[in-house]
Design a protein around this nucleic acid. Structure first.
Lengths: 260, 260
DNA sequence: GCCGAGAATGAATCCATCC
DNA sequence: AGGATGGATTCATTCTCGG
């Protein structure tokens, strides 16, 4: 019993609902590219139990009231919860499928455990350099987020050589408080074979599915909150689908070393 | 019963021997800055258990670089071993001491567990960007190593704001196959308060202790292999000690974003 | 001294073979 | 079966050397 799509076009299908309910109805996925709730926000447990909106709005540029679900779990339940959705994704993926999930420094080790507990082969860490972090005296500035990768058995061989570090500031106009820049998602997407089927079980405002469509891939997005599903559907509707054979080459960023 | 130093000057003391034997005789440490054996080098157990020189330097004329030991533990014993030396370091450190340890992507989660199991507060991930790594088709290039940090309780407040990402190619002339560039060690060193006592339980060719001396800090280094201890002693002897009050300011690298 | 061509290098990974 | 060995592979950057 396949659920009814909230939106559908020639490349993108969006489902409104809970990932754990909808995931088992899917199949034939070539890659997971996603940005789950990090459930971080403080070293102390008391920090983590405050509402998500309070934590993020303090540091964000967007002061409007945006809330999203599932971001106040403690470390242990975060591990269990991640293992569940990662295993569910594993079950609907083709052999040699790939996985790429964003995470912050605090939950990186836990997510890497969950990746392996969910059946995936642990493949590595890529770095999104945001350029600016909140400076704290005496410690390294936290100016990065991380993209953890995995695979279902051996990796699909492609001709892509994406860089291990990607430099991009956070976007100025965001419709979701953790929204990733389109260039960053396009970079993450390069791990999925051209023309493949991408799945984002925590779609948010739909940057993943939009960039999948724009780079000649197909995508399925799942989102619990109808406000974000609507935003994502609108973004996809405005995006042209470029079939794989016509997809332009992605240019790499210049190396920092080439400049000095 | 304090062991006999192998080398000593106004800023640096070097002990020849096993860290786990020598550590308990020390005290009054303000910061640990080190680069332990990663026990990495491949997904296959057979890859990990081959000689260090073979797994890391397979194609090259660098074979004249010295091999080193203790780099073939499996995941479980790597965790136990790291927890042991991290706890031993914790015990000889002053309150509010800091910890900075290099690691690669594969062992990062395990080392972060060991840091916490050893008593330290988990403080974050900084990135050493080497610029390029061996490419593998279809995956993100592994062009980084990581610097994990921790503290004994609250962190010492200093006026330093070291960047979270540091760009530097691997050094040209190495006397140890995993030798870090001096600029990278100087960056890592910024987490220790000026004038403080730095400890490196896996000294190798002595870049840590040399840069501690050069930046107005004092240091203790421990090394198992006399060939490396000798190299380190020679490097320290050639280095001028600049007392803390005369230490020049370290300039930050320009941001990549300022260039584009 | 400058420039270009060609060679060398990298805390790598995978797999076929051999014991 | 399982561990050890060796070869093939990938490319951005640096190094070497000749013109």
């Amino acid at each position: 019993m396949t659920p009814e799509p909230y939106y559908q076009d020639e490349a993108v299908t969006i489902y409104l609902g809970d990932s754990m309910s909808i995931l088992p109805t899917l199949s034939n996925i070539d890659g997971i590219v996603t940005d789950p709730p990090y459930s971080s926000g403080g070293a102390m447990r008391s920090d983590r139990t405050t509402a998500t909106i309070t934590k993020y709005v303090q540091t964000g540029t967007q002061r409007e009231s945006h809330d999203f679900h599932g971001d106040n779990r403690d470390q242990r339940s975060f591990l269990v919860w991640c293992t569940m959705w990662l295993a569910a994704c594993y079950n609907v993926s083709n052999p040699n499928a790939v996985l790429a999930s964003f995470i912050d420094w605090r939950q990186l080790p836990t997510l890497s455990d969950a990746i392996q507990a969910g059946g995936w082969v642990w493949r590595g860490i890529a770095v999104w350099d945001k350029g600016f972090g909140r400076p704290m005296p005496g410690r390294f500035s936290g100016s990065s987020e991380y993209l953890l990768s995995g695979s279902k058995g051996a990796m699909t061989q492609t001709d892509e050589y994406p860089p291990g570090i990607f430099h991009s500031p956070t976007p100025k106009d965001r419709q979701h408080i953790t929204q990733k820049p389109e260039a960053v998602m396009q970079w993450a997407m390069r791990i999925v074979k051209p023309g493949g089927m991408v799945l984002d079980p925590f779609m948010g405002s739909g940057t993943t599915v939009k960039m999948a469509k724009e780079t000649g891939r197909r995508a399925i997005g799942i989102e619990l909150d109808e406000r974000f599903a609507e935003i994502a559907a609108n973004r996809c509707a405005e995006t042209f689908y470029i079939p794989p054979s016509e997809t332009p080459e992605v240019e790499d960023q210049p190396s920092l070393f080439g400049l000095g």
